[in-house]
Design a protein around this nucleic acid. Sequence first.
DNA 1: CTGAAAGCGCTTACAG
DNA 2: CTGAAAGCGCTTACAG
Lengths: 349, 349
Amino acid sequence: MTTIKQVADAAGVSFKTVSRVVNGDPYVSTQTRERVQQAIEQLGYRPNLAARHMRTQRSNVIGFITDEIATTPFAVNIIKGAQNQAWEYGCLLMVINTEAETAADRTEDAIEMLLQRRVEGIVYATMRHKLITPPHNLHETRAVLVNCRSLAHTLPSVVPDERSAGERATSAMLEHGRKRIAFINLESGAAAASGRLEGYRRALERHDVAYDDKLVRHTHLDADKRDSGYAEMKALLQSGVIPDGVFCGNDQIAIGVYEALQEAGLRIPQEVAVVGFDNQTLIAPYLHPPLSTMALPHEEMGRWAVKYLMEGGEPPVPPHELLACPYIERQSVSVGDSVSGAPADVSYR
Amino acid sequence: MTTIKQVADAAGVSFKTVSRVVNGDPYVSTQTRERVQQAIEQLGYRPNLAARHMRTQRSNVIGFITDEIATTPFAVNIIKGAQNQAWEYGCLLMVINTEAETAADRTEDAIEMLLQRRVEGIVYATMRHKLITPPHNLHETRAVLVNCRSLAHTLPSVVPDERSAGERATSAMLEHGRKRIAFINLESGAAAASGRLEGYRRALERHDVAYDDKLVRHTHLDADKRDSGYAEMKALLQSGVIPDGVFCGNDQIAIGVYEALQEAGLRIPQEVAVVGFDNQTLIAPYLHPPLSTMALPHEEMGRWAVKYLMEGGEPPVPPHELLACPYIERQSVSVGDSVSGAPADVSYR
DNA sequence: CTGAAAGCGCTTACAG
DNA sequence: CTGAAAGCGCTTACAG
């Protein structure tokens, strides 16, 4: 690899002058500059960022740690958002996925590696919204939690605004005249579950609809979500409760709900409206009818985290940012709602 | 940040001795070693890898470039495989996604950034199997192509073995006595399409089944795969051809095929067997019946790439590695095949 | 077993 | 406008 000195020799100047040219210092005569530029191109010189890092004490690297990677497909958009934002600061992302394949305490090792590389900060992202106790060494640099937050509230964090999302999803059905809206929520321990339930209640309140305990059910942690959705919906129907709308904790639950409703001969959305959650683009558009659902602000959270890392200052109490979840309208709430490429003549649900 | 000198002062030794302890050099007296260890812990010393890099000329960083990230969900397992393998070499991954959000020539810029960081090599991965012409500056370091290959064959590459996969998928149906197996392939330009077609033909040959042109169809590039699958299957049936098996270019196509078959009153797998491709775990297990499909060796390709980068040598002609696609058996080929958590009493397809 | 010197490839002050 | 010196935090020979 060519060094700055070799360039200097080739151009007949001191290496300091080459440094000036490389860094766009204006105090270089045009003539010298051109000579140096030529030498750079001829020799294929590329500055060594490790050396620069040594002097400037800036690595221009941001660490990114995930707890899992493929399970929730579109959550990788957090990486995408973080990386795009980092690029704007001239930083690159060092990504480590700590899925339990190797040592148990791998997360701390991973953080250690990043600290030794003197990263500008660390983004710690979980693929599903949850409460965590951050690894202790995460506090030794700037860090932001994404899609999770710390119990002790020791670190800044950014998560989806679950309450607003729950309210929006429920309102979407209320606004189409639905009055008896069931909610088949995620397991009750899930970080997302309680906020969404609050939002659901709030929407009902605002539309003067009484809250009814019997309409709210939770799926179980370990069970397959589709199966649970099916089972809970079926149980609801068998208990004699016929809702005119169902809000589902995620799109897989919605598949099960579709199945149970079809089996009961109830049409979507004519008799029962359905709204999902997550906007799984491999599921939602392919159901019959295509599923209206809430999208998660993955990319935005990634961006927010990096931005905060680079510009956030050090407030005494770290912020906890809530980002809005967009409502993605398809055809499971109202017939005339929108269009899609689905073959209209297929009875497949 | 504490430096090696501060540790040395605290321990009352030269900084060279600290270096020895940190690097596990055996020629240090136990007593000295302990004193140094203590100082390290007290001061929270962490070696600066940029400085080490300067001297050793090894960055222990591997660059990873992707063309897109979220479109094909489980392809991110390539990153996972690459990272896990890198970890075994003590390397970290610098990940850049070059989705066309910013500048058009961003890929070359991305490579440039990695070169300036003196990465040990670059893994260039595409999320779907294709032919590419690699950016010219990719040749300025060690590089491996994943899930794609270069027309000029100038770089080592690793891709799924599409031909074997096509043969395996087709054989799975032939072995269950199917004789008229249709193939609704990806668009004919796709890198995966021709290999799979070869495999399909080969399987037929081996089972003494004549190849029939009319049974083979391709979807179109821009169309939604589900819609195309539906349309192609329907066209096939309307032309009077009733197959007893269908091999689908991907799982979305299979959704459409399921729909068309259901509409025609043909049961899966009793009357028609179906095999998909990609093993989309958000789709395949949820169809009725659950879809048997071919999985892509994403993680293995990622691993292979990093391993080759680190140990591959420099053969005159770069290797082109084909990795096997496992057949994932569910219930769309034969009734008694396997089990699943799907509610058996639902007619949903 | 331990240490003083040199140098990796740059940038930061400081002179001229 | 240009350059010589010092130093970022380490490791690599080389002495002792």
